[in-house]
Design a protein around this nucleic acid. Structure first.
Length: 224
DNA sequence: GCCTGATCATGT
DNA sequence: ACATGATCAGGC
């Protein structure tokens, strides 16, 4: 495990050092076993990058580099550099949401500064052969923030009004809510239509691919 | 169970 | 082909 970076430039330099290497090569440097596919270790790439960059491991609901105020996100990309998956951000609060605003929300804090690291994610490339790309330190533009806030307010209104059971992934232009649990049997507390407590499947906030693709496109030249 | 890290796999 | 809904692993 690498010690935590003490500055933004130190973190960026470490990330730059990874560009061009394969996941197998990076795993070997850290003496970590590299799986052939991610069917049973879906978060493996993120954990590997955390280990290399010196992120604080653990399940704490805070940014990966707390002292720097930076969140780390690996993003699987296609052969032409487009996102292959949506990006999970954080779990959605289903209770205790009275008075919660976008400005003081957990998700806004997480997205205030993100170090994106593109990694080849095509399933026909064995995990050890997948290459890591150039890192990108990103902060939401005013437009990004407006759009995320609008989606967040729409989604949170459904939660607040007890419409959790009506929520699906089709809501939200750039931000969506999807199940986030080990399986469909996991239930947590939420509000019913009359304000009564009900049990519902946990939800997570995800960034749609159109949003993350725009982030990548602003900084990298990508073929059409 | 809740949170982290996400991708898998099915439905349309 | 792609988005939605479902799922996998690990620490606390």
């Amino acid at each position: 495990m690498t010690p935590a970076p003490q500055s933004e430039s130190e973190l960026l330099q470490r990330a730059l050092d990874l560009a061009g290497f394969t996941l197998g090569e990076i795993a070997a440097k850290l003496s970590i076993n590299c799986p052939q596919d991610l069917k049973r270790e879906k978060g493996w790439v993120g954990m590997l990058l955390e280990a290399w960059l010196g992120a604080t491991a653990g399940s704490k609901p805070m940014q990966d580099f707390e002292n720097l105020g930076i969140e780390l996100k690996s993003i699987p990309i296609s052969y032409i550099g487009k996102p292959l998956e949506t990006t999970f951000v954080c779990v959605a609060p289903l209770t205790g949401v009275h008075g919660l605003s976008w400005e003081n929300s957990h998700i806004r804090q997480k997205l205030s500064k993100v170090l994106w690291i593109p990694v080849e994610g095509e399933r026909d490339i064995p995990v050890p052969d997948r290459q890591v790309g150039m890192p990108l330190l990103w902060q939401p533009s005013e437009e990004d923030e407006r759009q995320l806030k609008a989606d967040w307010e729409e989604l949170m209104e459904m939660i607040t009004l007890g419409n959790v059971s009506k929520i699906n992934a089709k809501h939200g232009e750039y931000l969506q809510l999807r199940p986030k649990a080990m399986n469909g049997k996991v239930l947590t507390e939420a509000y019913g239509a009359n304000g009564q407590p009900i049990k519902a499947q946990p939800k997570g906030f995800y960034l749609r691919k159109a949003f993350t693709q725009r982030i990548l496109n602003k900084h990298f030249v990508v073929p059409d």
